[in-house]
Design a protein around this nucleic acid. Structure first.
Lengths: 309, 309
DNA sequence: AAGTTCATTTGTCTTGGACAAAGTGTTGAC
DNA sequence: GTCAACACTTTGTCCAAGACAAATGAACTT
């Protein structure tokens, strides 16, 4: 029953795993910016304090949003949080906001069964598409903000993902499949482990009657391209969470557009590419998941002459 | 349409990501065992060939099964494969073996829809528990063997996970919940990302009427313990895939037993702890998922006096 | 506005040495 | 035959300071 492991100083490898910042980078930051300057054990090895790791987590997040290291590496925790608040997207205050908050409360009190039941009844009342756009999306926003602020534990965050996954997968699976084109392949790039994004998109597309195949997360670029070509897919849909390294998004998408035949459309969306302007042939960037049904209809208009509108 | 990225030499960071072997280890192996001895670019930086990475992948697998580096680091690919064959578990040749093979064939030909349909009809015919023990478990064994031999692509492996997940989650979700004790918390330790294991166990337990909560994969030890205590769970069920570092299993389980009150049972299972004898108080090690229903009944016998047998 | 150039910032890779933690094997006692 | 204690070997992780290319930002011209 010893919980002190938690507050005990962490070794550099643990910090790397926890923050996603490489050992090399941690050492070079210490050399250049005098932060983080961890204590040393009897052998001269670094021991990072809980506070330092906390700050590093926030710093990582700010870097992902486009800040530069020399701007943020001197700050203490309160300054960092101020910056974070400035950057965090304001929740669009809909009529469902209260509902979302009460769902989050269920999560906080670990009422997993009630959470799933509530989600389910909202799904049945609103229908799949409205359920996602009006409940899941704003809720994920709230959860994401709480998460980076450390107000949510790991199990709580995971429990949320699990329950939402259960409900949406069940809904998709229950759908009568029409299999009207386009054929859509859903996945994420390597290092991107968040599965809710593609799951939501899949739900939206299936609701429109499209043929969807999900490969889950973290698939190498050439593998995606090969699979899409072999299976004669019309669209590859990709999701980027806010955790996706900001500087890699454009580079990776360019490379992918290069190896994927131009006839195949790319739909990219997610918090990882807000405020990014990417111009590539046959690429659609979605700022909002609301736009997915429109994309499906536009595709049909263009390639099927619109008889399925 | 340039697929050559694939066969181009890889940088050390890529190899680390692909094989799970750290940069430091790769460099020290090169120093000590003269393997892998990659080419260098114009700046003297390491460039690993496809063959070397392939060998490293197999080596990683053999190390996970308990081999030592000095035994395997001199071998070429064919020798490594021989060793691998010796270690790979023989599939118990049941009457379902042919069915499994035909399912794998569907996977290989990328017939995702047919695969799901077939799985579903077997599920309905056999019932959830038999479906898992007689179809999913042997099939996962086949897939696992193919996977380490490189006979399966990333998308194929992911597709399998996705479809099985869909079917099992749907089944669990459809179950009428009885909520008879024990209360079971399901999850995996950090670094363990395979979700099918706990999902199968959850299905077995839900079929027995137990109250199950799944936290998904990769939860830190203290977080699991705290959640289990707060939620008054009776059992924590953990899954270890073959990819879990063999040398860490016992250490991690010991540490976890230490921070979790002894009244709470630990059930541990999965390919990651075959042929391991671990003796800890109130810990059950499952070599086979068939044993799960028995564990549930034993627990009830012991704590409820068996009136729910 | 949209390029072009130049200086600065930043992350990744290099080397060889050091050392603890884990594994192996031998011995001796029960 | 099983177990504990011991020494010996193997093995992964960490350290330091230097190097350099790729990305970024600023100042400039078109």
């Amino acid at each position: 029953m010893n919980f002190e492991e938690h507050v005990l100083p962490m070794r550099i490898a643990d910090v790397e795993r926890d923050t996603g910042i490489s050992k090399d980078t941690l050492r070079v930051w210490e050399r250049r910016y005098q932060f983080p300057k961890p204590q040393r054990d009897s052998l001269g090895e670094r021991l990072y304090s809980q506070d330092q790791v906390e700050r590093l987590r926030v710093i990582r997040r700010l870097l992902d949003q486009g800040m530069r290291p020399n701007q943020v590496l001197g700050m203490d925790l309160s300054e960092l949080h101020l910056l974070l608040d400035a950057h965090s997207s304001q929740p669009t205050d809909t009529s469902r906001h209260a509902t979302c908050l009460s769902l989050v409360r269920l999560l906080r009190t670990h009422c997993s069964r009630e959470l799933r039941r509530s989600l389910n009844s909202i799904l049945i009342k609103d229908g799949l598409q409205a359920f996602i756009t009006q409940t899941i999306v704003p809720m994920s926003g709230i959860i994401g903000n709480d998460w980076i602020r450390g107000e949510l534990t790991v199990p709580e965050e995971h429990l949320y993902t699990e329950q939402v996954q259960n409900v949406i997968r069940h809904a998709i699976h229950s759908q009568e499949t029409e299999d009207v084109p386009p054929r859509i392949l859903l996945t994420t790039f390597p290092e991107e482990g968040h599965c809710l994004g593609i799951l939501m998109v899949e739900a939206m597309c299936v609701s429109e009657g499209a043929y969807c195949t999900s490969l889950g997360t973290s698939v190498p670029l050439p593998d995606i391209a090969k699979y899409a070509m072999d299976g004669k897919y019309d669209v590859v849909a990709l999701s980027f969470s806010a955790a996706y390294p900001s500087r890699d998004v454009i580079k990776d998408l360019k490379q992918f557009r290069h190896i994927l035949p131009e006839e195949i459309s790319i739909w990219a969306g997610g918090a990882g590419l807000i405020q990014k302007r990417i111009h590539l042939p046959n690429l659609a960037v979605l700022t909002d998941i609301d736009g997915v049904p429109g994309l499906v209809r536009d595709w049909r208009q263009q390639f099927l002459g619109g008889q399925h509108d």
